[in-house]
Design a binder for these strands. Structure first.
Lengths: 247, 247
DNA sequence: GTGAAGTTCGAACAGTGTTCGGAAACCATA
DNA sequence: TATGGTTTCCGAACACTGTTCGAACTTCAC
């Protein structure tokens, strides 16, 4: 269980144990993320994790109640990384025209997914049996944080009231966005799992998204939008990468 | 390795061992399908399978080279079951109007997925590390068999030449279908993995599909199309179920 | 300094996939 | 029908896995 400072508690100074605990939890998550990226969810193992940090397998139970709890923490951190990717992309292209701003979100979503295939599957498909995010749980907010930057251009354009950066969208605001989400999530999900290897999936994704943006009544994105985004990723994308691994 | 009669071999009468082998492979796949449906891919286990059929774990290596080979066979059989679902739905509604025929495919796709969540994830996401279907492999044809009945109304309507039931579609015919596939696959994938629990996903799916059919320029599906399909599933769907489990 | 709380570890248990050698059963052929 | 080769089956073993327990050890708050 990742211990976070409860809001009601008295603010005590961080003790020596607390810092060690915090650093070790980060180290464990980073190592788990490495094993996940290397060999998929099936190859992140309790004993291997203990071996990587030089401790006994039994000792790890001080920091996580078991493999399930470690996976939920890993899911939350992966959500945060994906949210950072979509957020950074939206911020970097905030001054572009509307069509480009709408296209940027799905592009960032796809780029992150193709660079983090096991993480994408870990977050979006049930790898463990019988696991379901409880309605009030932190998974929901993490999910909203992923899609807020993608939906912001649309909602800012359609809605009369402006949308603040921190205020979460409610269901009514999310619903018209459902179709677009389904489309690019489906295409990305198929591509991540090698179901679109028989075609030029990059061009296919771009053309499908342009068609959808047009069909929804928004102005078309510029021709240079995709290449502009890719060059931005090439320069700014590397910085975030170290941020994810936590070391 | 599921031994099938090679076309070049001399046709010998099925010996006692051959029948026993065939029946046991079917029994193993059926049992694996049961464990998969019950607890997800992680809970179908080699020793548990041996226990279920009353044999030693070592003996199973006579029929499958290992857990990976059993999973690929299971994937193929699951593909066949999903293909049967979409095929049966298309055949049953072949005389409906164009809009309804287009909507029926995604409805059948979604219905099967919600009734077979672990199977859906097994087929469409990489559960094992480093597995990728080879280009000429049987997975591709199995995938085409799933989508041929869904795409048939569209291709029959748009293409000048008629499409036979057995002839596979080529890439050019599949590409305009990509957007629709991405849309309903994405929505279903999200729904299967409990990412749409916060809304009425049934109504959302229906409205999104109707919108897409309209945006693509096809006539709208009738209002009673969905309820008609569901009642058809309630009567005819039960028959196919036994067909899948193989017993 | 003292008692409580947190941390670490070794040992053990039950479970897993897989390999190997030998003993049966089966089957085609002589 | 007897023979020889192939196929099937099993017990034992190996190297793993997640998890629990109890006892030592360290750190913290008072």
């Amino acid at each position: 269980m990742a211990t976070t400072q409860q809001p009601g508690e008295t603010m005590r100074s961080e003790t020596r144990r607390d810092r060690h605990r915090r650093e070790l939890v980060d180290q464990l998550c980073a190592e788990a993320g490495r094993q996940l990226a290397a060999g998929g969810a099936g190859s992140v193992t309790w004993r291997g994790l203990a071996r990587a940090v030089g401790m006994s397998p039994a000792s790890l139970y001080t920091y996580f109640h078991g493999l399930d709890e470690l996976f939920t923490e890993l899911i939350l951190r992966t959500y945060a990384d994906l949210a950072a990717a979509t957020h950074d992309a939206e911020v970097a292209h905030r001054d572009d025209e509307l069509g480009d701003r709408i296209l940027i979100g799905p592009l960032a979503y796809r780029r992150w997914a193709l660079d983090h295939r096991p993480e994408f599957n870990l977050v979006f498909t049930d790898q463990l049996p019988g696991y379901a995010a409880e309605p009030g749980g932190p998974t929901i907010e993490a999910q909203v944080a992923v899609f807020r930057p993608i939906a912001r251009p649309i909602i800012q354009h359609s809605g009369a009231r402006s949308v603040s950066a921190t205020e979460p969208f409610n269901d009514d605001e999310m619903r018209p966005f459902l179709g677009l989400w389904g489309l690019f999530h489906g295409l990305v999900s198929l591509e991540v799992n090698h179901h679109l290897d028989w075609l030029d999936s990059t061009a296919g994704f771009e053309s499908q998204m342009r068609w959808a943006i047009n069909a929804l009544g928004y102005p078309p994105a510029s021709a240079r939008c995709v290449t502009q985004f890719e060059t931005w990723v090439a320069f700014a994308g590397g910085d975030r990468e170290r941020h994810y691994n936590g070391d």
